[in-house]
């Protein structure tokens, strides 16, 4: 029973990733500009060299053949060679992944800390002035694009690595505040209050436990949000991470890099969602 369940999840996981990769490859291959190269405008190149340039990526022209060949090599740990940067994709990813992961980590941690730090007093204190101020603050950051926040921090010599946090905190704040407020209206929490349990005990043993599954779901989603925000931040502020690589590769129609990144993001998202689902089910069982 368990084996069949795990097998079914694994199969869904693999199929989703394969489809994501194929869709990514199809979009790049049939997008405008795939068959051209900036070098073609170099007046020094003669006709033979221009033809050779066009032929140099002939292996990428036939999409099914390219994708099968790519997957075959991927199993062996070879993701191909970047068309624009002329370096192995595995090297590019391993060099740049730490930059993006660090940026995401700072962003997610600071966003959650700030969001919860504002949400918990809002529920516990229930002061209209505080509620208004914290809602207005989160509203401002909800409206301003992350790239603008990042650039503002950069020009002010501020900590750009926290820009993602300023994108995540309003979402965390609003969601957490609503979930926690809802938790305080649950019968078992009301009963606990009636029995005279301390506010701290009510918050940690009743409210948090009840709110945990919803918050964990948001945690899974915030990983995807953080990665999405990392792309413009890295591009605008010149952070040599995966986001900047993705942007450069998109401009250069770099098929091996873009397919690898699509698969990587798909794997990442799947794992994050699976972890979130697992945590939710554990919390739900605990709560029950």
């Amino acid at each position: 029973m368990w084996i069949r369940r795990i097998f079914r999840h694994l199969a869904a996981f693999v199929i989703t990733i394969l489809i994501a990769g194929l869709l990514g490859a199809t979009l790049v291959r049939f997008g405008p500009g795939f068959e051209s190269d900036e070098q073609e405008l170099d007046p020094r190149l003669n006709a033979h060299s221009v033809q050779a340039l066009r032929q140099s990526h002939a292996a990428e022209q036939h999409l099914p053949a390219f994708y099968i060949h790519y997957l075959g090599h991927m199993i062996q740990g070879d993701l191909g060679v970047s068309r624009s940067l002329e370096r192995p994709v595995t090297e590019l990813l391993s060099e740049r992944a730490p930059v993006t992961l660090r940026l995401m980590l700072y962003g997610i941690a600071s966003g959650w800390l700030l969001g919860l730090a504002l949400a918990v007093p809002a529920v516990l204190v229930r002061a209209p002035a505080y509620d208004l101020a914290s809602t207005a603050l989160s509203g401002v950051f909800l409206c301003v694009p992350t790239a603008v926040v990042a650039l503002a921090l950069f020009f002010a010599n501020g900590p750009v690595r926290f820009a993602i946090g300023l994108l995540i905190f309003p979402k965390v704040f609003r969601y957490a505040r609503n979930v926690l407020a809802d938790a305080y209206t649950q019968p078992h929490v009301l009963a606990a209050r009636a029995r005279g349990l301390s506010p701290a005990s009510i918050f940690f043993r009743q409210v948090s436990l009840w709110a945990a599954p919803q918050l964990l779901t948001l945690a899974g989603v915030s990983i995807g949000i953080a990665f999405g925000a990392a792309i413009p931040i890295e591009v605008l502020c010149d952070f040599p991470g995966i986001g900047q690589l993705a942007w450069t590769a998109a401009l250069a129609r770099d098929l091996p890099v873009l397919v690898s990144l699509t698969i990587l993001v798909a794997v990442f998202t799947q794992i994050a969602n699976a972890a979130s689902d697992l945590a939710v089910s554990v919390c739900t069982r605990e709560r029950a």
């Binding site: 500009g33 051209s36 401009l251």
Partner: peptide, 13 residues
């Protein structure tokens, strides 16, 4: 306005 690759494709191919 087109991104550079799309523009090159139009003027050369």
């Amino acid at each position: 306005t087109l991104d550079f690759r799309s523009l090159i494709e139009r003027i050369t191919q």
